[in-house]
Amino acid sequence: MTNTVIPQTDPKAAYLEQRSAIDQAITRVLESGWYILGREVSAFEQEFAAFNGAAHGIGVANGTDALVLGLRALGVGPGDAVVTVSHTAVATVAAVELTGALPVLVDVDACHGMDPDQLEEVLNGRLAGGARLSSPVKAIVPVHLYGHPVALDRIMDIAARFGVPVLEDCSQAHGATFDGRIVGTFGAIAAFSLYPTKNLGALGDGGVLVTNDAALAERLRHLREYGWKERYISHDAGHNSRLDELQAAILRVKLERLGAHNARRQAIAEAYDRGLDGLPLDLPRRRPNTVPVFHQYVVTTPNRDALRTALQARGVMTNIHYPAPVHLQPAYRDRLPLGPGGLPQTERMAGLVLSLPMYPQLGDEAVASVVAALRDVAPTL
């Protein structure tokens, strides 16, 4: 039994670790007198793009806006369809609808990523219940859930064969790699959330996109600020979605430690792998040729709720990402088209997934306490 509570995540710990540098960055911005789309945003955009091996970075207000603007830059709008998944944060699906397009949801595989086989079926026009898709598919949005890259080789091949652009949802996968290459540069555009608990998190809301396409980058910059090409003259019906200077300055500080923080997450995951081996739990699977960054370390068990209660009694906090698939939530139930055969894996996972404590400042002693608590209670459930 632990003597103190071990949180599932702890964004304050991330601030305290770099408190001096973050406070200096905040002071620098406050004293500059420039608070929106200034030097800090420009520098962060360049530094984040370089980290990802991309040519362009575009800072925006939050991760949902990043998805919306990315889709709009690809020409997605009313009357179009976008293929994505239901086993994700609701923001992914909400963003599609905010463009006026129709989300078409496909199932996931054993690694919680988009099922390429069902994606291909949908692109061939087939849906659940024998229905046919009438709207043209204008984009595919795979989600690198929990920090584990999707099957990018197959998804990109399928997308190329059907001539449909890919917008990667990298909101949980900053720095993850597929076949030695950082995710986010496989598709035409990638969208990242910078919410405080993400692998790279602001101290408030924030989002960023990356692309290697100069024309798309220019369009994204116009769309994030009212469609302005010159100030006060809107050439497109755009948004107001600007990353502020304070958050950009904070993110620049935190970006310097992102590689080390991802390495720590990977070390924690390896410790969990070793310590939980042999328990009646399914541990996270690694897709071949990938290096996940473990935004979450998610186990699956049919005794999920009982296990969660037992761990909480021992001071180990957990979370469920996510308790209900998007297509079964009240706002979306029975109105979105699904891939052929429905989403059985997605629906099964919703009742099994449990996220263990995972953040870079989690110490070895705390990790050992989590393992000990699981070894104590999991076999009894």
Rank of each mutant, 00 (worst) to 15 (best):
G339S: 07
L307I: 14
G201Y: 15
T4V: 14
P357F: 13
T99P: 04
V164K: 01
Q247W: 05
Q18D: 14
G180T: 09
A214Y: 13
L356R: 02
S135G: 04
Y15H: 10
Y232S: 06
R285L: 15
P142T: 06
R257C: 08
D23W: 09
T380M: 08
L356Q: 04
L123S: 04
L255V: 01
G147Q: 12
A306P: 02
G238P: 03
L258N: 00
D205P: 02
N124G: 11
V5Q: 09
T2P: 05
A313Q: 14
E45F: 15
G70W: 06
Q247M: 10
A95E: 11
D273L: 08
L243T: 01
E47R: 07
D334W: 06
R219N: 05
A190Y: 14
H87L: 15
V83T: 08
A66K: 05
S241H: 01
L283V: 00
R304S: 04
I155W: 04
V60S: 05
L216D: 01
H56V: 09
A54W: 06
R314N: 14
E31F: 11
T92Y: 08
D10A: 06
R224K: 08
G57Y: 07
V141P: 01
N303E: 14
A249V: 00
A190P: 03
G63N: 13
A248C: 02
L37T: 09
F294H: 12
K12W: 14
N303A: 15
L243P: 00
H148F: 15
C111S: 12
T211W: 00
A190V: 05
R304P: 02
P149M: 08
M317F: 15
L356P: 00
H239M: 05
P344N: 12
R132G: 14
A248Q: 01
F162W: 13
D364W: 10
R264H: 08
L16S: 09
E245I: 01
Q361S: 09
E40P: 02
V83A: 09
R19N: 06
A66D: 07
G342I: 11
V104T: 03
G206F: 11
V316W: 12
R224F: 03
